[in-house]
Each structure stands twice: as C-alpha cells, then as structure tokens.
C-alpha cells in the first residue's frame, strides 16, 4: 500500500468511528462517555486530514491548496482503481 492510501485509510477508520458514534449519540445525546470518545476521534481525524490535504490535495472543496489550479478535479476519484 502506498503512503497516500495508507494515510487515507487511517482517516477513513477515524471517520467511521465518528459516524458510528454520531448515530449512537443521536439516540443518546447525554451520554458523556460517547461524547468524550467522539472528541478524541475528531482530533485524530482532523490532524490526519490536515497532513493528508497538505500533501495530496483536497478531500473536500473547503480545503483550498495554495496553487493556481483547482485541484479538486484531480484523479484519482474514490471509485477509480489506482493506476
């Protein structure tokens, strides 16, 4: 696995934890333990996301790299097999 994919899959793992906790918190909005876990995973995800985007370009259009080209369109898109 290349470095990009490796970093991306770490983000995906934290983001999945976040989403699963989100669903739990939707039906248990006052569960302090779940909220604490959410906060921890969120910090990890944001930290990795910062690293990833600086190196490999945007995951969302709200990250704008300091370049003259709109990098959002760049391959690979998630449904593409890596070349």
């Amino acid at each position: 696995m290349d470095e990009r994919t490796n970093l991306l899959e770490q983000i995906m793992a934290y983001d999945f934890v976040l989403y699963d906790l989100q669903l739990f918190l939707d039906t248990h909005p006052s569960d302090g333990n779940a909220l604490r876990d959410y906060k921890m995973a969120l910090e990890q995800s944001e930290n990795l996301r910062r690293q990833y985007q600086a190196k490999y370009g945007p995951l969302t259009t709200r990250y704008l790299p300091n370049t003259t080209c709109w990098q959002w369109v760049n391959d690979p898109w998630p449904w593409n097999k890596e070349a």
Binding site: W72, V73, N74, D75, W77, W79
Partner: peptide, 15 residues
C-alpha cells in the same frame, strides 16, 4: 453516470 465519465473535469461536474 459519474462512474462512466472519462475525464477528471467530467467526473467532478457529475459528482
């Protein structure tokens, strides 16, 4: 349809 788009610009715009 985006899965069948052949260029980066057209993948992006369909998405």
């Amino acid at each position: 349809q985006r899965f069948s788009m052949p260029t980066k610009e057209t993948k992006a715009i369909l998405n």
